[in-house]
Each structure stands twice: as C-alpha cells, then as structure tokens.
Design a protein around this nucleic acid. Structure first.
Length: 569
DNA sequence: GTATGCTGCGTTTAGACAGCATGTC
DNA sequence: CTAAACGCAGCATAC
C-alpha cells in the first residue's frame, strides 16, 4: 500500500489528524478517496456527525456537481480534499470541522499552506515536486515546504508535531534532506513578472503625484528596496524606460509640457485606426522620450547629470490614466479594453450612418471574449485536446462579433487566444443559466473557479463602463450594465426585469418566468395565491409588498414558509 | 455475470490579489 | 540542465 495512505491511516488509528499535501488537484482528490476507501467508522456518534457534514457539503450547490458528490461521499468517512476548485462554503465547513476534530484527514493542494492557521498533529507531503510549465516537474521552493511543515504541531494540544516528506528513492531522500531540511529559504523576489507590476506601479506613482518628474522617478526607484532586490539596475532602467514609453503611447501619461493631454477617441463620428493613432502619438513624443532616455534612469550616473544641469521631464497622468490607476487595472489590460470599446463605438457609429448592409454586431460574447483575454482573467479555462475542434467551431460561430483580431495560428499567443474563446463560452453559458453541474461536466470549470471568474468579470465590466464614461461612449453604458447584472446573477436577458425584486435570483426568476410571469406588470396582475404556489407564502407576500400592493396575511398551511424557502435554496 | 485489478497509453498539471456596491432566509 | 501521475480503455483474473 502507498506510504502516504499508510501514514494517514496510522494517524487515524492514533485518533489524531493529518493534512496530506499533494501536487495537483486530481492527486488530492484521488488520495483522499483512496484513504476514505480504507476507513471504517464504528462509532455511531461519529458516523452521524460525518453524515451531517457530508450532507451540508452536498447541498451547497443544487443540483450538486460531481465534485460535490465526490467530496460528500468521503466526508462520510471523515476524510476530505481541499483545493481552489471547491466552493468557498465547502472550504469553510471543511476547515472548521477539521478544527473541531470532525474531519480526520484533509488532502490538499498548497491552498491550505498559505491560508489561515490550521494546525495539525501530522503533515504529510506526498510529493515535494510540482509541475512548472518551463521545467517540467521541479522541486517546490524551500519556503513553501516550510509553510506546509509549519502546520504541524498544535501548541494547545500537543507537545510536538510531525512533518513527513515522502521520498520515492534513496536519491530523492538525500535531495530532500539537502534541499529542505538543510537548505535556507530563498529570496521571495523573482524577476520574471516585473513588467506588469512595474506598469501598474509606475502609473499609480505618477497618477497619485508621488512622482512628478523623471528626476523624482530615478530617485524613487534607486532608493526602493525593490530596486535593490532586483539587483541589475541597468536592466531595471531599461524596463522602466520601456514602461514609460508604453504608458505614454497608450495615453495614460503625458511627458513634459511639450504636448497637451492626448485626447483619446473623444470624437464619435470618426473612424480611428488605433495603430496609426499610436504611431502618431509615438512620433509626437519622440523628442520628449529622447530627453528622457538621455537624461533619466542612468541611476548610477544621476549625480553627474544633475551636475550637468540637464532638466528633468515632467510626468503627469491623463484623466483616463488616473482612472485606470484607480481601478487598479493593468495598463496593458486597460489599453486592450479601450481599443475594444473604440471598435464597438466605431461599429455603432457606422450603423447610424448607413442603414443598410450587414453590420458587424457587438454581442454579449464580444464583451465576454474581450475580458476573457486580459491578464486579470488568468488562468483562462484550458482547451483540452479533445475539445479543440469544438472550440474552433465556437470561434467561427462568433467570429464577426470579436473585437480583436485572431492572432496567427503559429503565434505563441494563439493557444491563449483560443483559451479566451473557451473562457468566453463559459461566461456565455453561465449567463444563459447553465447549471454548475453541467459547467463542470462540459467545460471542466469547478464551482470555486467559477466564483473567482465571475468576480473578475464583474470588476472588468465595471471598469469598462467607467472607461466608457470617460471616453464618452454613452451608448455602451446600458449594455455593459445589463451584462454586468447578467454575469452577477447568471441569467438570460429575458428574466432580467424580475431580478429587481429582493429575494429573487437566478432560479426563482426562472421559475416565475416559466409560469408566465415575465415582467413586473405580470407580477402585479397575478394573485398572491398564485405567487404562493410558485415561491411559497413568505416570498409571495414580500413581492406583493415590494410592488406596493396590499399584502394578504399569510395563511398557515401544512408546509411553513421556512420549509419552502429551504427547499428552494 | 459482476467486481476487481492490471497494463499501457494519452493527457494533464497550484494558487490568489485588485475595485465596487449591496445585500441573506 | 529539468517529469510524473492521473484517467481511461481494454483485457485478465477473482469471486
């Protein structure tokens, strides 16, 4: 039998608890399941307790997903898995019930290591390797090992705790000993992801007025702990230089007083070719940039340049640049969104001018793909090998609606682009009321991920409408707002009016609609009795009340309102 | 006949943070 | 420089 499973069972035999850290979700689920298979609960009280927890996790989503069922089944044995795909309510109950001692083993991905304190007698690391795109399976950072191992030992209950790392070979054993037991935790800092961070950082520093010119900028970055950590100051200079130029080209900042604030796409009637626009902008700024290049950023030489009396170039955020910074958008994303909004607006204007002919339509899918292809929406839903054909069809189907060009098939970004199509398709299904169980089966999105995606989408769409306001694209505000509500509730267009009522969400609105109550007016004309049969007495009364109509006292029937409500939620 | 186990091959692979507005029986 | 394990299908064996 697997050593991990042996150790887990032995822990249970001691009537203690353990966390098993696994390197993938599939592994966490499977390991937990394998352990659960071998567990036999004898104590009736424990059985009942476990059953109760199992049920409460099962009914978090209705209808339950296969993930819910799998979790629920093993909770019966006081075993659980834990990873980011779980619904947050399930995560919560698992954590609290583990604390209460009602769950004996949790098989988890690193979520649990980073999260709140969840001390335990024994930590078992099934594997200390993890897949990384670039290097295949590689050792996890020492710091992460320490975090996981640090869960072991509960000062309140135990004198000590155990952290056990499983090695598959003698070689691995030595390596683990050297690397994790003797090794020092590495610096947290990585050079890999500097650019996006720097983009945002730079813009926010300028927008907030902390940095007003290139002198201050140089000074600021030279002094930063971050710059110190980065080490290679010249490389940092280059990056800052590049970011500055990008921010300027995107119209988020203005250099010096050489030019008035760039008005971006404010005139509605005019077709804007964004590429040309950008080039123009770059031309205009060349002189300013040259000054900057020659003068700033030579951090080591900054004294020298000051002595030479070269003047500093002013840095100022534009109106839209400020808003981008406030919205906490990556400027690259913001630019992408703005370009897409430009395109939508162009289509709208064209449609106004010529009434005939085929117009390129902007649909919900257009916007959904737009937000799906941002950095913020990463990681996108991945297209599996067998799904490729399906999603090329989806792409074809929505081709005309897209607001960005399809990259070349051999482009490195092509995969990512296709994943944005799948992600958009996921949102599309969500706002057409497809259930979470189906979404998991068909698209491999788990409830936990769904929540994160929806939150991001909500934020991005909100940001879009804020940008649209500044760009004066008024005609896009309503569609964006509608889309935002649809995303939030996961509903189709047709039942939108019903959502204004308190206590009416995705499923209740659908119920009403299917009973022929499609609008607020329909509801006003319906009797409270009818509403009661659909939604139960309490909600029926509440709706009548919200509509400003007389509320008849609730009759006490065989079933109370409480029970009805329970059934619907 | 059904359940379980083994082998071989193709496929997949952790997580989390930002803003906003408002509410849940 | 630098994979490993899961899931599934197909087949063998146990009950």
């Amino acid at each position: 039998m697997d050593d991990t499973i042996k150790l887990a069972l032995e822990t249970i035999a001691q009537d203690k608890q353990a966390i098993v850290f696994c390197s993938s979700r599939a592994s966490a689920e499977k390991t937990a399941e394998d352990i659960a298979k071998k567990v036999i609960l004898t104590n009736q009280e424990r059985k009942d307790q476990a059953k109760e927890i199992s049920n409460s996790c099962l009914k978090v989503i209705s209808p339950p997903t296969k993930q819910c069922k799998r979790l629920s089944a093993m909770l019966t044995k006081q075993i659980a898995f834990h990873h980011s795909g779980l619904h947050s309510k399930q995560k919560d109950t698992i954590e609290t019930e583990f604390k209460h001692g009602n769950i004996k083993i949790i098989c988890a991905t690193p979520t649990l290591a980073a999260g709140l304190s969840l001390p335990v007698f024994r930590v078992i690391c099934k594997s200390l390797k993890r897949f990384t795109g670039r290097f295949g399976m590689s050792w996890i950072p020492t710091l992460e090992y320490l975090q996981m191992a640090g869960r072991a030992g509960r000062p309140e209950y135990e004198d000590f705790g155990e952290a056990i790392a499983i090695a598959k070979t003698q070689n691995e054993k030595d390596e683990i000993y050297q690397r994790y037991i003797c090794g020092k935790p590495e610096e947290i800092y990585s050079k890999l992801n500097v650019e996006p961070v720097l983009r945002m950082y730079l813009l926010s520093l300028i927008a907030s007025g902390i940095i007003r010119d290139t002198d201050q900028m140089s000074e600021f970055f030279a002094k930063t702990f971050w710059a110190h950590q980065f080490g290679d100051l010249e490389e940092l200079e280059e990056i800052i230089q590049r970011m500055l130029k990008l921010l300027e080209g995107w119209g988020f900042i203005v250099l010096g007083d050489l030019k008035k604030e760039q008005k971006r796409s404010l005139s509605l009637g005019k077709q804007k070719n964004s590429k040309n626009q950008k080039e123009d902008a770059n031309d205009l700024f060349t002189s300013a940039l040259e000054i900057v290049s020659n003068k700033t950023m030579k951090l080591e030489k900054s004294k020298e340049s000051k002595d030479n009396g070269v003047f500093s170039v002013q840095l100022r955020a534009t109106k839209i640049g400020k808003r981008v910074s406030e919205l906490y958008l990556d400027p690259l994303t913001a630019n992408h969104l703005i370009e897409c909004l430009d395109k939508v607006q162009y289509r709208i204007d064209q449609a106004k001018n010529q009434s005939t002919g085929d117009q390129l339509k902007t649909t919900a899918f257009s916007y959904l793909q737009m937000i799906s292809n941002t950095l913020e929406m990463r990681p996108r839903l991945r297209i599996k090998v067998k799904e490729q054909e399906y999603y090329s069809n989806v792409l074809l189907q929505h081709y005309e609606e897209l607001l960005q060009e399809e990259p070349d098939v051999f482009d490195l970004n092509y995969n990512d682009f296709m994943n944005s199509i799948k992600t958009a398709e996921f949102f599309q299904k969500w706002i057409n009321e497809v259930g979470e169980d189906v979404l998991l089966d068909e698209m491999n999105v788990r409830p936990g991920e769904i929540r994160v995606k929806l939150e991001n989408a909500n934020w991005l769409i909100y940001s879009c409408s804020e940008l649209a306001k500044i760009l004066n694209y008024k005609s896009q505000l309503a569609p964006l707002q509608r889309l935002r509500i649809r995303i939030k509730f996961g509903v189709s267009e047709e039942i939108l009016p019903l959502l204004k009522l308190k206590g009416v969400g995705r499923s209740r609105a659908r119920k009403l609609f299917n009973q022929g109550l499609k609008t607020i007016v329909d509801l006003k004309n319906s009797s409270q009795t009818d509403l009661t049969t659909i939604l139960g007495p309490k909600l029926a009364a509440s709706i009548k009340d919200q509509l400003g109509q007389k509320v008849e006292p609730i009759k006490k029937g065989k079933r109370t309102g409480q029970m009805n409500l329970g059934k619907f939620t």
